[in-house]
Design a protein around this nucleic acid. Sequence first.
DNA 1: ACGATATGAATGAATG
DNA 2: CATTCATTCATATCGT
Lengths: 214, 214
Amino acid sequence: PQQQQNHQQQQQQNQLLPNEDGGCSKNGFLCRQSSTRWTPTTEQIRILKDLYYNNGVRSPTADQIQKISAKLRQYGKIEGKNVFYWFQNHKARERQKKRLTTDISAMQRGVWRSDYQESICSTKYPNITSGAPSSSASVGGLHAAGQVGNYGYGSFAMEKSFRDCSISPSGKASGSMFQNFSWAGAGAGAEPYPSPYQFLEKKTCFVETLDDQE
Amino acid sequence: PQQQQNHQQQQQQNQLLPNEDGGCSKNGFLCRQSSTRWTPTTEQIRILKDLYYNNGVRSPTADQIQKISAKLRQYGKIEGKNVFYWFQNHKARERQKKRLTTDISAMQRGVWRSDYQESICSTKYPNITSGAPSSSASVGGLHAAGQVGNYGYGSFAMEKSFRDCSISPSGKASGSMFQNFSWAGAGAGAEPYPSPYQFLEKKTCFVETLDDQE
DNA sequence: ACGATATGAATGAATG
DNA sequence: CATTCATTCATATCGT
């Protein structure tokens, strides 16, 4: 059913080798060095994918991220952000890929159905209430309890293009309300790019310091 | 001081000329700016950060947003919403990092460390009072008058406990977001790569107890 | 080596 | 204010 992630990812399992030479042969100088980006090991990848595909984890919570990273740390250096980004990216790219893959023609013909896109997820998670998870990579009992099926947002992209939220022109801007900015609907038939600072600009008196000497 | 410009920092360096339009002429190279999304120039970033860190601006009001964007417009095309989002994102991300820098396990143990990083507001002027404010980027007398000291709420999540304070006595805590992300700012922490994940490593028998469903 | 691709990281833009 | 989505940059890796 899914074949979108079997290209190349079988690199070595060396986590991070601080053996970087001091010579920044890059374009600048204050470059990389040890700041090499995280390179997931195969074990880490395996676990992550297992969580993703077998446990339906898509956007792990802080708690989950913690557990996951703690777990993955056994296989190499890793930080919470790596896990966070991994899921973000994986989800995003899968969707992106699907967008391109999923016959566009189907969409334009309207024969597109929303059930075949979820095939990759096997939908096995919905009822975690049974008890023992028995998942392959149960990282801290991570079961993606609350988010399963959440991403089933219809399908791919097509309805999220125009999100024009027309807001009511309050006219009064006080505090931190932000929905009454003209930009809320910017482009919704307004000016090309208007100077949006007149809608509430009352221009007090202080004009003394407009120093542009930053 | 809060951005780990190690190597990445993608399109940040493209300096749009003080044009008024989208006329970007970076280095005589590719003008990638034509996209939809705002690409802050370095000057704009600098001012924004200055406002953020030196003036304590966190959630600028419409008024402030106006002034700021007007000011920043000298350095490139910008709209109010860009400013608005910038502050929102900057705050959220800083918070996101920080919020969990004070990892929950420490929190539950009361070992909470109020280790801060930024030089938030220097408690500027409570008002647009007298003469020249010495702030770097005083945008039209924008001094963050009303909100300084507002976020000086000590630190972690405390006012929002109602939402994510699901700390269980069993040593489990369901925070809201990532906890120990040391990535974002690194303004003060700046550890190469911390490994503070043992705090939740206490239980290896984790099996399914992750249910943090509301 | 160079170019293509995969993917980590960052962040603007939204939404709830 | 928290979370998520989309885009884009940067770099690691592989193929030729």
